[in-house]
């Protein structure tokens, strides 16, 4: 089994409350908040699939989908 590769970083915009936890703790600055204060993947190619954003999301709004 090789390194996990990102297929999609899916954000449920209806559930996201824009707390910024995922943005703050992402080791690769993959995520940011947009103008509506919703999390968006801005550098998905940098994602190392550590899953921390998904696990730390208080709103269960993030799915890190692997290839």
């Amino acid at each position: 089994m090789g390194k996990p590769e990102l297929k999609e970083l899916r954000i449920n915009r209806d559930w996201c409350k824009g707390c910024g936890i995922c943005v703050h703790f992402c080791p690769k600055e993959v995520l940011d908040l947009d103008q509506e204060d919703k999390a968006v993947p801005v550098k998905p190619d940098q994602c190392i699939c550590c899953m921390m954003c998904e696990m730390r999301c208080p709103d269960l709004a993030i799915d890190v989908i692997l290839k």
Binding site: M55, R56, C57, D59
Partner: peptide, 18 residues
């Protein structure tokens, strides 16, 4: 029932998640 009632950034959602 989502999004839930907890405030933005509330730790309780993280407890639920994990």
């Amino acid at each position: 029932f989502f999004p839930h009632i907890w405030c933005p950034g509330c730790g309780h959602g993280i407890v639920l998640n994990n």
